[in-house]
Amino acid sequence: MNSMKHARQYWYPVAMIDELQAGQQRDTQLLDTRLTLTGDDQCGLIATANEKALLVTQACDHWWVTLCDTPLPIFDLPEAQEHERRFVPCGVVHVECSPLRAVENFLDIAHFPFVHTDVLGAEPHTEVYRYDVKVDESCDEVIASNIRFFQPQAAKSAEGGIHTEYTYRVPAPMVAVLYKTCPQKPDAWDVIALFVQPLSEDSCDVWPWMALFDNESTLSELIEFQQMIFVQDRSILENQIPRRLPIDPGIEIPTKADSTSVAYRRWLKQRGAYYGALAS
């Protein structure tokens, strides 16, 4: 299967649920294909490509579309049904980078002290302790767990530094979900997800989304925190060379701290998810 055919099987985010009013139109792009999005009278969304209507669905406060008539099922995120959480779609951020590099950066912990200084990390607390990575065969997802990291301000709701625990899931090549210690509710996990809309192999629109336990912060403060973090990464993502994600070992040299990235690349390769990748 070629990389485009593989990529077309999945669902991708294109808009927030309440973004387009009835009759309102916006052009966008998905997998090199021009799309037109139109809000309809029943608060629905019509997505067309080359005058053909596409399949559309709702998940996690976003509209998702697929270019395939027989797509794979959309990923399952049970926390999106937990109504005691606050659901926070954070708005689109455009990045001139491979959609796979955007996901991979989200999975990386080692850069926290250097890019998200004094928020998600701080010197001298730079060590990435040993953690577990596997491909869960039952759901065919990359799972990284037992990640611990010292964070000066782990979330908007955090007061002072805490040792944060992380678990990551990659349920689709361009969807990454993290579960992290909730500062206000230590027995629960906050959920932060990155939904990536691939415009082309080296540009993407990214739709961060959160499902949090936080009764104190305003919506604006929660969005601001997430946008600040994501845009701190953006200039670095746009300057990574090569533009596409090297998927074969040897082009970039990983360390032990990059185990999640290694597993993600191997998982992409095994399933032929080469869209946005640099393969030999």
């Binding site: 927030m16 973004e19 604006s220």
Partner: peptide, 10 residues
């Protein structure tokens, strides 16, 4: 005061 400039347009 944090203002939701994007995506909220506050």
């Amino acid at each position: 005061v944090a203002v939701n400039f994007h995506p909220g347009g506050e």
